[in-house]
């Protein structure tokens, strides 16, 4: 059987290209993976809403032919919650960077997770504020360098997945821009999950992060993702010290029977109708 080349053009807004991402940036890999996952699920374009915050990753919605909202810094989830609650039939996907989702948007992140609302959040996690020139973010590892940590970072980073799970998200996974095929499957599963799903995608910013941290080229950064990422199952057999500096990849947590916010709200409405 001849495998035909995947046609991205039917999902891309040609008039908004070329994109703003630097050559070698990992964000384009995630964009293509997202398109493949949506295509696989055969969801109508009209039924998809993509909301994003501010930052490099958050420019993604402009390039794809869905209902797209490029919102304010950190607040994409608030818009997502508004439209999802008003039109629960829509599939709502939120795109955020690490600074967007966890620093300025940290409050919205934990509360969206707490509500377990049926929204997918994809965090493009490159450990830095790339768009503003490479300041340190809340996921930047201790000891690494940024334009605002010239003497090395001393702030412990958030683990996106631990935080999501602790706050109430019912589907949590991690992948990287290296693991593109795994990423397709995880995005597909995240969208399919009924509840708040968080996908932490480690992506490379060699321009703002890598070159200050001995990874000047995209190749070095992709290699870092390949070498430091460890499948969840393999990690189970390792001692904590062996996991230092590494991160788990794959499905980290899933809970299928938790009440979903929109559905619970609809139940209340039904109950009021009968009264």
């Amino acid at each position: 059987m001849i495998k035909t080349k995947f046609d991205y053009n039917k999902y891309l807004r040609q008039n908004t290209l070329p994109h703003i991402w630097c050559p070698g940036c990992g964000d384009g890999i995630i964009l293509k993976s997202l398109i493949r996952a949506i295509d696989k699920l055969q969801i109508k374009k009209d039924d998809i809403v993509i909301a994003s915050g501010i930052g490099c990753a958050s420019r993604l919605p402009g390039y794809v032919d869905f209902n797209t909202i490029h919102t304010t810094h950190g607040r994409a989830l608030t818009f997502a919650i508004g439209i999802k609650m008003f039109k629960p039939r829509l599939k709502v996907i939120t795109i955020s960077g690490d600074g967007d989702a966890l620093a300025i948007g940290g409050n919205h992140f934990i509360h969206a997770a707490r509500r377990n609302i049926d929204i997918t959040l994809i965090v493009f996690n490159n450990y830095t504020y790339g768009m503003t020139g490479g300041q340190y973010s809340p996921t930047q590892p201790i000891g690494s360098y940024a334009t605002t940590t010239p003497y090395g970072n001393i702030e412990p980073p958030f683990d996106v997945c631990d935080l999501a799970k602790a706050a109430g998200a019912t589907w949590v996974a991690r992948s990287t821009s290296y693991h593109a095929l795994q990423l397709d499957k995880l995005i597909e599963a995240a969208i399919t999950h009924q509840g708040f799903s968080v996908l932490d995608v480690i992506t490379n910013c060699h321009i703002s992060y890598g070159r200050r941290n001995k990874m000047k080229s995209p190749v070095e950064m992709i290699t870092y993702q390949k070498e430091k990422g460890i499948p969840v199952r393999s990690a189970e057999n390792l001692k904590p010290e062996e996991l230092t500096g590494r991160f788990k990849t794959g499905l980290i947590y899933q809970k299928n029977d938790a009440p979903e916010f929109c559905a619970e709200y609809q139940k209340k409405l039904e109950l009021l109708k009968t009264k």
Partner: peptide, 17 residues
């Protein structure tokens, strides 16, 4: 919502719908 900013964000999301 969790704060005032989120409240208006949700309002705007809904309004777009």
């Amino acid at each position: 919502m969790e704060d005032e900013i989120a409240a208006l964000g949700a309002v705007l999301g809904a309004s777009l719908g």
